[in-house]
Write a protein that binds this DNA or RNA. Sequence first.
DNA 1: CAGTACTTTCAAAATATTCTGAAACATACT
DNA 2: AGTATGTTTCAGAATATTTTGAAAGTACTG
Lengths: 169, 169
Amino acid sequence: MELDEAKLKFIHAWGTLGTKWGINRTMAQVHALLLVATQSLSASNIMEELNISRGNANMNLRALIDWGLVMKELKPGDRKEYFYAEKDIWKMSKLILVQRKKKELEPIMVVLKDLNNAVEGDGEDVKTFNTTIKDLNDFALHADKVVEKVVQSDINWLLETFLKQFLKS
Amino acid sequence: MELDEAKLKFIHAWGTLGTKWGINRTMAQVHALLLVATQSLSASNIMEELNISRGNANMNLRALIDWGLVMKELKPGDRKEYFYAEKDIWKMSKLILVQRKKKELEPIMVVLKDLNNAVEGDGEDVKTFNTTIKDLNDFALHADKVVEKVVQSDINWLLETFLKQFLKS
DNA sequence: CAGTACTTTCAAAATATTCTGAAACATACT
DNA sequence: AGTATGTTTCAGAATATTTTGAAAGTACTG
């Protein structure tokens, strides 16, 4: 396969699949484009490459920068901004994990905490409700802790001690 | 707080938050309703409780059954179908994990496998591309294995041996 | 078989999300 | 200050997803 063909295929696929990850097609495509770029690209480069408007390019670049997945670079003697992606896949994954935790886990925890033991009484139905909320709450706390630890700690150490030990094919 | 108020709050919140988990509001609300129900409910009960149409109720119940989160029950002497949710939160989480893996991870793996080493040549740009794809591929394989093992194995054992050991607050 | 009680399907309507493009804004240079 | 070269914003347009509701389908009963 030719390099350009492969890159296009990758960018296109990443865009399609991005939607399943809760990020929009363009954001995923910009990310993909920068992931396989050998140099940093300007907003105009990206617009042209992906056939998108300036506004769209700008908004999604900002979002990617927000997530920490993309960085801005200024080249001396050039007023344009150039962009490049974090290429370390482990770092990238951690950054994505942090965002997903923020988006998917934290809002749920707020609600569960609020409902946990908020209903008093000892009818069967109250007990059932309280148990369900408590179970969900416990689970959310566990999940939160795992994510936090994975993000904080040395992922390689985690991998070596955990994966190699218990998850051997 | 009154039980009914708490239930409504939970159902409402679960619906809103469900969208962030890649499932639609109604599906999440039906799930929430069944999670906190003390008996199994008919389609009509659910329509009424959530103010949704018959078609919507039906489609989302099917989806929940597909995911394994909800089961159908037939009561003797009654032609209606009744529905109830899996209440074991660990089982529930595993079922959700399986679906998310299917939706989010597997399609990416197909693409990466296809692109892995598909480009030949030893230019700097080819090497960079191949490295990126390989890294992503390795990561996806790892993630896949982790999910698979978590789902297969006794989650409590995993928790006890791994979490309690290494992830203590 | 006809009637009843339910479930399923799916085209069209409603809703939500994303994208465009032009105007506003910012900054550096002459 | 004026001009050139960018970036950012956001209302409206385009697109995608979800929901409705009525018709079709299924299955049990007498």
